[in-house]
Simulated scan of single mutants.
Amino acid sequence: MLLVLLLVLVGAAAYFFTNKGSEKSTLNTSETAFTVTDTAAVTKIFISAKSGASNTLTRQENGRWLLNDKYEARQDKINNLLETMHRMEVKRPADKASRNLAIRDFATMGKKVEVFQHGKLSKVFYVGQSTDNDLGTYFIMEGSENPYVLHIPGFNGFINTRFDIVEDNWRSVPVFRSNAQSIQELKVEYTGDPQGSFTVTQSNGKYTVSGLKETDQENVKAYLDNYNFINGVFFVPNPQNRISDSLALRKPVAIITVKDTNPEKSREIKLFPKDIDNFLALNEKKKEIMQVQTFVFNRLLIRKDGLGKK
C-alpha cells in the first residue's frame, strides 16, 4: 500500500513540475487558436463592428490587396495586420474580476474578424478592449464563452487598433500611376512662374517639350517614370465637399495634368501649400483631398529647362 501511495505522489509531482509555469499547456486549444501561423495563405480578412462599419481586405493575384472591392489598400497597414495576427499570443485567460466586463464590451464595442486562407474561412474571433494596464487586449473565439488576454511578446501596448474599421484609414492614397510609355501628354503649370511651366507630348515614342528647341529624350523619359507610383500620405476628411469646394476657389501653386492611354489613370491635381513638409493635393473631379509630401513632389516640380539638352 505504501508503495502504491508513493507512486501516486511521484506521478502527481511529475505532472505538477512538467506543467508548472506553462499556462498555455492547460488552455483549451480550440478557444485559444487566435494566432495565424501561415499568413502567406491568407486570402481575405473581414473586419466588422456593431455600428455596421466593416472592411473587407482581399489579396489579389499580383500580391497587392483590395479594400472593399473598390480601393487599393495600404500595404503597410496590411503588413502590420498580418504580422500582428502571426505574432500575437495568449498571455492569460481573463480573470474573474474582468471577465464579465470584457464580455459586455465584446457585445457593444467588439470587432468581429473573419480570416480566410486559400479562399476558405479558417477562423472567426472577436477583438475587445485593452486591459487596464494597456499591455494586452481581450479576445474571444466565436462560439466560446471564455475571453483571453492577448499580447505581442516584446511589444508594450494594445493591439485592438490594428483591426481598424475606418475605411479611409485602410485606403492607399494613389496620386499618379502612369509611366513614360503610357503618358500621352503631361502638363505642369506654375501659377507664379509661367516661364518654368511646360507641356510634354509623346508621339511614336518620341517626346517634345513646349518651348524647347532640343529635348533630352532620356532625361524626359526618366522624369516621366517618376509618375509610375506617386502616393499621398492620407485622405483629408472632406464632409459635404466643403474643403474641396473651398480649395477650388483658391489659387494653387501648381497644377499637374496627366493624359494617360488608360483614361482611369488620367487626372488633374492642384497643389496648395500646407506646411514646409507637405502640400494639399486636390483632385477636383473626384472631390478628393490628399496630404502629400513635399520631398516626393519635388521630383515632379521641375522647371522646363531641366528637360532640355545641356
Rank of each mutant, 00 (worst) to 15 (best):
Arg267Ile: 09
Asn160Tyr: 02
Arg171Gln: 10
Asp95Arg: 00
Glu288Cys: 06
Glu288Trp: 11
Arg74Met: 05
Thr201Ala: 07
Asn100Arg: 08
Leu121Ser: 10
Thr137Trp: 00
Met141Phe: 00
Arg303Met: 08
Phe234Asn: 14
Phe155Arg: 13
Leu301Tyr: 11
Pro93Thr: 02
Lys274Ile: 10
Val124His: 04
Thr84Lys: 03
Tyr126Phe: 06
Leu135Asn: 13
Asn80Glu: 15
Val113Ile: 05
Phe125Pro: 05
Lys111Leu: 01
Asn68Ala: 00
Met109Glu: 12
His118Asn: 14
Asp134Arg: 15
Asn79Arg: 03
Thr18Leu: 14
Ser98Arg: 13
Thr84Cys: 05
Asp277His: 09
Ile256Thr: 03
Gly21Pro: 02
Asn298His: 07
Met85Phe: 01
Thr39Asn: 04
Gln181Lys: 13
Ser22Thr: 09
His151Pro: 07
Asn68Ser: 01
Asp134Asn: 15
Ala281Pro: 02
Gln291Cys: 04
Asn28Ser: 11
Thr32Trp: 00
Arg104Trp: 06
Met290Ile: 13
Lys285Phe: 10
Leu307Gly: 02
Tyr207Gln: 09
Lys206Ile: 14
Arg59Ala: 03
Glu72Met: 04
Ser25Phe: 06
Ile269Leu: 15
Ser266Cys: 04
Gln240Ile: 14
Lys274Val: 11
Ser48Leu: 06
Arg250Val: 09
Ile78Ala: 00
Asn231Lys: 08
Lys77Cys: 00
Leu67Asp: 01
Gly157Leu: 05
Thr208Ser: 15
Val4Ser: 14
Asn55Trp: 01
Ala107Thr: 08
Val258Gln: 01
Pro263His: 00
Arg74Lys: 07
Lys286Thr: 12
Asn231Arg: 08
Asn226Lys: 05
Phe198Cys: 04
Leu7Pro: 12
Pro263Gly: 03
Val8Pro: 03
Thr161Gln: 12
Gln240Phe: 15
Arg59Tyr: 04
Val90Cys: 05
Gln291Thr: 10
Lys123Ser: 06
Ile152Ser: 04
Asp132Arg: 12
Arg242Leu: 15
Leu282Cys: 06
Asn100Ser: 13
Lys24Ile: 14
Lys187Gln: 12
Lys24Tyr: 12
Lys123Cys: 00
Gly232Pro: 04
Asp38Leu: 03
Phe139His: 09
Phe46Gly: 06
Leu7Phe: 15
Ala14Tyr: 09
Pro93Gln: 03
Leu3Asp: 14
Lys221Tyr: 07
Thr56Ala: 07
Ala97Cys: 08
Gln184Lys: 14
Arg267Thr: 10
Glu83Lys: 15
Asn226Glu: 09
Glu167Phe: 06
Asn100Ala: 14
Leu67Asn: 02
Asn146Pro: 05
Pro263Tyr: 00
Asn79Gln: 07
Thr35His: 04
Arg162Ile: 14
